[in-house]
Design a protein around this nucleic acid. Structure first.
Length: 679
RNA sequence: GCUCGAGUGGUGGAAUUGGUAGACACGUUGGACUUAAAAUCCAAUGGGUAGUAAUGCCCGUACGGGUUCAAGUCCCGUCUCGAGUACCA
């Protein structure tokens, strides 16, 4: 925050020396105090409260006209219209707090009243909007030459916006400093002389709390003489009315506008028919609340769902606290999390909840995306008439007089794996294009272009998992989705690798079967098989904790491959294995569980307990490296000291070969990990 | 622009506190079985290079530096991509 004193000598409406403090200065907010010496002019939002007071008589008409023109445009319009530059000089000058030079004060609609203080210090050499503004009004009264404060940078064409190490110049005590250093130094100096203050600016946008939909909580609000009135709490809740269709009315009112019983009687204090023409009956609000009106706090209601007296009891909330884990789509990452946290913080401040956050842990799982197919459509001129053509991907349209082109979504079911479109099927699908000519490649095929997008009916890229289910079963589909990659990552749906998962399912089944059918031995399992089992228990247990389901699936594959190679057929291993697999592939696991002779569901079976003893080994394969590069491995005993280990390694023939004629500077021996010789 | 996240084979992706980069799977190539195909099984598969071969050497985790006996992993800088947000000063 920097304060600029207004110069009274340039401001004839206020007598010299009598300017009140509040009127006498303009406070501005900037994130670039380092550019303070680049200030060429100032711009106020047209709505700024000082505008009327500081405008000189000569500029009064122009300023008034500009204010009226601006007021006619909505903020949305002003934000959307980035190109048009407009503004007016007020005639007033302020004094630069450090250099003491006069700074002309303008108004312009690129400055928004709602942000910061509604006023900016304009530094054309370092801000593009200021640069554009200065150039647009260059040479006019009140628009001085642009001040350049960046050493060796040409700012005649555009502003220099990077915050890098470019040293400052023409900046008095900031000369030679880079962005960061200058920023802190400038703030310090401004605070010293009382012309500014370091400040962190937080911004919370307003969000509209209403929707023009049917399905939402109705507002307990009625309108008396056009003014909204709250319905008293004791008459709540009011419930959604019946409507004939969940659509807006013909004249554009929200769906509640269709209700015939949607008026409020202030005597009976209930919802009555719209035909009720008594004086105490008023129309109810037609908007409903947005989704997050409920989604921001519903988890607390779940804790005490049958409570008729309040949102939830303090006891219930204290018992359940907050949500341990929230898994939702990544589109929730900003919206839901933001609103929900905001509400819970408010509820906490009101003393309604003991927690400050809604969720202890939140995971946004990635979306499965679709691969859309696009047909390129051209509008070309033929004999003075505009005609449409489809052109295959990769075909050059050199002899055509192209007027315009666009991409049209094609249904992905009409396209084969080589991206070739079934043109006849396309014409049937889109009869409106039945007569449009296709420009194909030389081999007569028509190729579409592909793009990864959200799956959506309107993009015609929806692939149904039903086909996969029919062909491979629900377990395979489930496993494959997990196997595709990390939970939090969005990925296009691509079934190319599904045979790998399907193969795993078949191999798993085979472990429990021989040629004759189901067959499991009651004999003790081999130490190797026990090792495989317990290695897998540990891995899967850790993976579940970390939501790393893709690596669980691969560890199952490894286990099944190893057990197959070991010809393991023992109940001691296969029974816990089925339990391990059951959360991932419940159907096959349940089936195996039943074949193993169990009457109850596998979901009732306890999770196998990991036992370290099966993983204990007498030797470890050590990587032996020289100067940090691994050359070979050696199997060495585990239960020896560091010194013994070093001796054993040094005694090895291959190690001696590597070290021949060299002096060891350092030997790094870390038991259980690695051996490294530096020479 | 800002905030956050990510860059690893032909592909999807693995890799505890820094400690054998490329697990697992797809794809590709070769082989077995088959009249043939499908299915199944076996082998090879980061790149380069030397050798008949066994085997060896060099380079490799976006790019440039740094720390360390040792870096995909830690630090500094750059680039690119993705998501969110934006006339926000």
């Amino acid at each position: 925050m920097v304060s600029f004193q207004l110069e009274s000598k340039h401001n004839p409406t206020v007598p010299t020396g009598e300017m009140p403090q509040a009127m006498g200065r303009i406070d501005i907010f900037t994130t670039r105090p380092d550019t303070i010496y680049g200030v060429t002019f100032m711009t106020l939002a047209p709505e700024h409260e000082l505008v009327d007071q500081i405008t000189t008589a000569a500029q009064k008409d122009a300023v008034e006209a500009y204010k009226i023109a601006t007021a006619a445009r909505s903020e949305r319009e002003r934000m959307a219209d980035v190109k048009t530059i407009s503004g007016v000089f007020t005639g007033a000058y302020a004094t630069h707090p450090l250099s003491g030079e006069p700074v002309p004060v303008w108004i312009g609609d690129y400055v928004l009243a709602g942000y910061g203080t509604g006023a900016v210090m304009a530094v054309p050499c370092g801000d593009e909007r200021d640069h554009a503004f200065a150039n647009f009004f260059a040479g006019q009264e009140g628009m001085p030459e642009i001040k350049n404060i960046f050493e060796g940078v040409d700012i005649s064409e555009e502003a220099y916006t990077p915050k890098d190490k470019t040293p400052l110049c023409n900046s008095d005590f900031l000369n030679g400093m880079s962005y960061k250093q200058a920023m802190y130094t400038a703030i310090q100096k401004l605070e010293e002389i009382g012309a500014g203050k370091g400040k962190t600016n937080y911004r919370l946008r307003d969000a509209v709390f209403s929707r023009q939909r049917y399905w939402g909580e109705p507002f307990p609000v009625y309108y008396k003489d056009g003014l909204p009135q709250m319905i008293d709490r004791k008459h709540l809740p009011i419930e959604l009315p019946e409507v004939d269709e969940y659509l807006p009315t013909e004249d554009g009112a929200p769906p509640l506008g269709r209700a015939t019983t949607w008026s409020w009687c202030t005597q009976e204090n209930k919802v009555v028919s719209n035909d009720d023409d008594r004086d105490c009956v008023y129309p109810l609000e037609l908007n409903t609340m947005p989704g997050w009106a409920g989604s921001s706090w519903y988890m607390f209601r779940y804790m005490d769902a049958n409570n008729e007296d309040e949102m939830f009891s303090a006891e219930a909330q204290e018992y359940w606290n907050n949500v341990d884990l929230y898994i939702g789509g990544s589109e929730h990452a900003t919206g839901h999390l933001l609103y929900s946290r905001f509400w819970v913080k408010l509820l906490h401040d009101l003393g309604k909840v003991t927690v400050e956050e809604p969720f202890q842990k939140m995971i946004n799982q990635g979306m499965i995306l679709g691969e859309s197919a696009f047909v390129k459509e051209l509008e070309i001129e033929v004999d003075g008439k505009i005609e449409k053509r489809f052109i295959s991907q990769g075909v050059k349209a050199k002899d055509l007089n192209i007027k315009s082109g666009r991409k049209l979504h094609a249904d992905v079911s009409l396209v084969n794996l080589q991206n070739e479109l079934d043109m006849e099927a396309f014409k049937v699908w889109r009869p409106d294009y039945a007569s449009t000519e296709f420009i194909t490649a030389e081999d007569g095929t028509f190729k579409v272009s592909r793009e990864v997008e959200k799956m959506s009916k309107s993009k015609y890229n929806v692939v149904s998992p039903d086909d996969i289910c029919d062909q491979y079963g629900a377990d395979t589909l489930r496993l494959y989705e997990m196997f595709l990659g990390p939970l939090e990552q969005a990925k296009p749906w691509n079934t190319a690798g599904i045979t790998g998962v399907y193969g795993f399912m078949k191999k798993l089944w085979k472990l429990y079967h021989n040629d004759a059918g189901f067959s499991v031995s009651e004999e003790k399992a081999s130490p190797d098989s026990m090792k495989t089992l317990h290695k897998t228990i540990k891995k899967v247990q850790d993976d579940i904790e970390n939501f790393s389901f893709n690596t669980s699936v691969s560890s199952f594959m490894i286990a099944v491959n190893e057990l197959t190679a070991q010809k393991c057929n023992s109940r001691e291993v296969l029974e816990p294995l089925a339990v391990l697999v059951s959360p991932y592939a419940p159907h096959i696991a349940e089936e195996l569980w039943s074949l193993l002779g169990h009457k109850e569901s596998i979901s009732e079976a306890p999770f196998p307990v990991f036992d370290e003893k099966h993983l204990v080994e007498s030797s470890k394969t050590y990587p032996i490296s020289f100067n940090g590069k691994m050359k070979f491995t050696l199997d060495l005993p585990v239960d020896v000291s560091k010194d013994e280990l070093e001796k054993m390694v040094l005694a090895n023939e291959k190690v001696q070969q590597q070290l021949e004629g060299k002096t060891i500077k350092k030997a790094v021996v870390i038991p259980g990990r690695i051996v490294n010789f530096v020479f």
